[in-house]
Nucleic acid binder design. Structure first.
Lengths: 166, 166
DNA sequence: CTCGCTGGGTTGATGTGTCAACCCGGCAGG
DNA sequence: CCTGCCGGGTTGACACATCAACCCAGCGAG
């Protein structure tokens, strides 16, 4: 298999750093997700929805607002809200005739209140405090640059249904 | 919902940096995964297996070696290898009586050869080059610390099947 | 008015990840 | 010998994400 492995598409340092990043990504995510699931029966997706709802003044939002906040695809949102409603974490209320509002239930509120501090504590112990303020802020800045680069690319290279690009 | 939102479990800077990280994570992953899928019909999981196999001298490994390399759960590995075999990317060969070896097929080799440079190029454009060498290496170092912290915690706090901890 | 488009939202098929349970060969203790 | 455990691997049920197709209200062009 040397024919493949002999052509390093990233140099050694870069490769190592990239793989460290990937491993951290997975390790951290798995760790956080598992605890959230085990202790509170919530997935990270549940958590994200609940956080957004609980941060709104009224505890109720339209699905597309949640979509903008979370950057999820609309079908993912729809499926997930359906599942969350089945579990009693949220409710869909038909107010505006056609577009239902997503409402945080008592149970959903209780869930987020219970798990949020614990979750944030873990984020702190395993990420924020490990990096320290300086490196954390630098990483946040790097992250914004990466996001901006990708978004710019998507806009210039492949404007989503305007003209040919593949 | 102020009762929840008024208790910032991370301070503003930390919160912002953490959310930037999360967004980068999702944006980058989605971007890379989508292109890999669209252009080569491969998922990131496929890619990871193929890379590992192609980096071995012989193009064949036992499943648990792949498991150690990728850190996947064994059931995930089993399911995924089954699916990859169905698509002709790998083959399971029963050599050691009981434990089958995973073999890279011609088709799997062709796939990884075709997509790896393109994928690496994207990693470079959207991540490596955006950060630059210095910040990249620093991030790699940070990542290793985070990983080490989580692993240490798992060992001390919850030694996987030794004694009670829930 | 009607046609067709747009955009929020739903649905179903499919591929994927996780958990828990299981299969089975090897091996240590009785 | 049997019994029970260990560990690599499989399986089935379920939760989840993505894609493509669809539904339907509003709206602008004809």
């Amino acid at each position: 298999m040397r024919s493949v492995a002999n052509e390093p598409w990233l140099d050694d340092d870069e490769q190592k750093a990239w793989r460290s990043y990937l491993l951290m990504r997975r390790t951290l995510e798995t760790h956080l997700a598992r605890h959230l699931q085990r202790e509170f029966g919530l997935s990270e997706s549940d958590f994200e929805i609940l956080v957004n709802l609980s941060e709104s003044e009224t505890g109720r939002m339209r699905a597309y607002q949640l979509g903008r906040a979370t950057q999820w695809e609309k079908s993912r949102m729809s499926h997930h809200l359906t599942r969350m409603e089945k579990r009693g974490l949220i409710r869909k209320e038909a107010c505006d005739a056609r577009y239902p509002e997503i409402v945080l239930t008592e149970q959903g509120l209780a869930a987020i209140k219970a798990c949020a501090p614990v979750h944030a504590g873990r984020v702190r112990s395993f990420f924020v405090d490990v990096l320290g303020k300086e490196r954390l802020l630098a990483l946040g800045e790097s992250a914004n640059e990466v996001i901006a680069t990708i978004e710019k690319h998507q806009r210039t290279d492949c404007p989503p249904e305007i003209s040919g690009c593949g």
